[in-house]
């Protein structure tokens, strides 16, 4: 095993180009577990800790450019307003110690269906800034997850940042685990209202081979909100609409039975979370004129 310690982003890209099998390590919260438990012996470890700019973020007009290594703690502390869904998701990540080290770049690189950030990114709308010595490109989040723990990165590419659409409306995130802290998702759900485009977006974690959106549910809800004039009149969403939305979200799952839960439970739980997060976000939208709210009220 070789330990590569690039001092700059350019050096890192060059190292990755020279050694496409090199495993990038930033927070270490995935890679080191695999090494400690003898699951993986990469030929090269590519340390990204010395590249300070990966820990920076820029808040732009439309979006936030979030460095790949910005720790979850910083997202919770500093980006709650711009990225409320991701901030809530960050708060559910493992433990405070892990949140101090891990970042969204690692979640994307590992591309586990159980990664906590994915549903929030899918719901908010995001693009992954991937770069290699060949150049830089933006990969839409919808095209990023290609299979179980597989993503759209080329072997010589590294994740530089994620461009996440700034919240124009309330966002929520919910995750089921069998413990009240420090737990891997049995399943997770993210929901974002986009009043600017009068659309909603969703994200589902741990309930399919990859993180997915519930597109049929989004289409249904978009149509229902439009038809009822809900965006303008701010009426309470009818229970039947919420119920059908929840059912369509359940239907978007393609889960398995494993030690963390049954497939049947995952479908059920995604439905419950879809209904609740819809209620929370919509109540927030009605009550605050579209301003994002960090924690939902008691319904």
């Amino acid at each position: 095993m070789d330990f590569l310690r690039p001092a700059s982003w350019e050096e890192a890209l060059a190292a990755k180009a020279a050694h496409p099998t090199a495993v990038p390590i930033a927070g270490g919260t995935d890679v080191m577990v695999e090494i400690n438990f003898d699951h993986r012996r990469p030929e090269y470890l590519l340390d990204l800790n010395r590249i300070g700019e990966l820990g920076d973020w820029e808040v732009g007009e439309e979006s936030v450019r979030l460095g790949a290594s910005v720790p979850y703690t910083a997202i919770m502390d500093h980006l709650r307003g711009e990225l409320p869904g991701l901030a809530l998701a960050s708060h559910t990540v493992a433990s405070p110690q892990i949140r101090n080290r891990g970042g969204v770049g690692g979640n994307l690189g590992t591309a586990s269906p159980a990664g906590d950030a994915h549903p929030a990114l899918l719901a908010a709308g995001a693009e992954v800034e991937a770069e290699s010595v060949r150049g830089s490109r933006l990969i839409p989040i919808d095209d990023f997850y290609t299979g179980v723990k597989r993503n759209a990165l080329a072997p010589d590419e590294l994740i530089r940042a994620v461009h996440i659409k700034k919240a124009a409306g309330p966002q929520q995130y919910s995750k089921v685990g069998t413990r009240n802290a420090m737990v891997i998702a049995v399943c997770a759900f993210g929901l974002a209202l986009h009043p600017d485009t009068r659309t909603v977006r969703t994200g589902i974690g741990s309930a399919a081979p990859t993180p997915v959106r519930a597109r049929a549910a989004e289409d249904f809800l978009n149509a229902a909100l439009e038809e009822g004039g809900f965006w303008d009149n701010g009426k309470i969403i009818t229970p039947s609409v919420a119920k059908q939305f929840a059912e369509l979200c359940s239907g978007a799952c393609n889960p398995i039975d494993d030690v963390r839960g049954t497939a049947s439970y995952r479908r059920h739980a995604v439905g419950v979370m879809a209904r609740r997060t819809l209620t929370w976000t919509w109540e927030s939208y009605r009550g605050t004129d579209g301003t994002a709210q960090q924690k939902g009220r008691v319904a």
Partner: peptide, 14 residues
């Protein structure tokens, strides 16, 4: 933090 699900934000009392 004081509800079932804890930090995972699954219920606000529902």
């Amino acid at each position: 933090r004081q509800l079932p699900g804890g930090l995972s934000n699954t219920t606000h009392g529902e």
